[in-house]
């Protein structure tokens, strides 16, 4: 069962369209798997829409301000209607395992996989500067060494499960961590995650400190 959800402020910004594509997609993917959040988003969207289109100020824009008639004529000139594109499923392959990707990622460009040990990572090219978005596969028994983070780190489980000191995480769990968290996820059965982070990982423990150069690899 999904136990970890985006907090309300995040959902609010999502509905307002104020989050970067990386985080918006993360919430959309989670909502697809989580009826509770889906419901909350639907409710909130209704409210926000109502508030936005309620005319509190009785404004009357002069016609020439918007060139209303001209714009209407231009728009209605063509009778063409929009046909939704065929719903092609997009999938990725990591180490011979095929994963069907959530719809939200349909039009995103996914880079080649790079591998270190039991971890494989493909960058999703979203051009969001310091924010890095990736697909991360852990093969059974794989894990990310204990690390902390200067910025935020979103891990969304698309398939499989992993564990850390706080318990087990399953498909659909939306795990948002910030600099105050440390964790050390290990996946017994293997998993695929969608990850968004705005800074490289920082490994914190003993010999793992030597791994810090690969922190940038993982997230």
């Amino acid at each position: 069962m999904i136990k970890h959800h985006p907090k309300f402020e995040l959902i609010q910004s999502f509905v307002n369209g104020e989050l970067p594509a990386s985080l918006s997609a993360g919430i959309a993917i989670h909502a697809e798997m989580c009826p509770k959040c889906r419901h909350q988003i639907a409710q909130l969207t209704d409210q926000v829409a109502e508030v936005n289109f309620e005319d509190a100020y009785q404004e009357h824009l002069a016609d020439d301000d918007l060139n209303m008639d001209q714009m209407i004529a231009a728009i209605t000139e063509s009778d063409a209607i929009f046909l939704p594109p065929e719903n092609d499923e997009k999938s990725v392959v990591f180490n011979n395992k095929t994963y069907v990707l959530p719809k939200a990622l349909n039009n995103m460009v996914i880079g080649k996989a790079a591998n270190i040990g039991k971890l494989s990572r493909s960058r999703i090219q979203l051009n969001e500067n310091e924010i890095h978005t990736s697909l991360l596969q852990m093969q059974p028994g794989g894990g990310v060494p204990e690390h902390t983070h200067k910025g935020f780190e979103l891990t969304l489980l698309l398939e499989g499960s992993f564990e850390d000191a706080n318990g087990k995480y399953v498909k659909g769990d939306f795990i948002m961590l910030d600099g105050s968290h440390q964790h050390h996820p290990i996946s017994r059965e293997g998993c695929l995650c969608y990850t968004v982070a705005n800074d490289a990982l920082h490994f914190t423990q003993g010999i793992n400190k030597l791994l810090n150069p690969i922190g940038a690899f993982i997230y």
Binding site: A25, H39, K103, A104, N107
Partner: peptide, 26 residues
Amino acid sequence: LRKIKGNKEDTLSDDIWPIAESIATE
């Protein structure tokens, strides 16, 4: 906004917030 900020000409919004099917399915 994405086009202005990231110089990306992609259209991701309809995948993230599908228009054809409302997200309310309860």
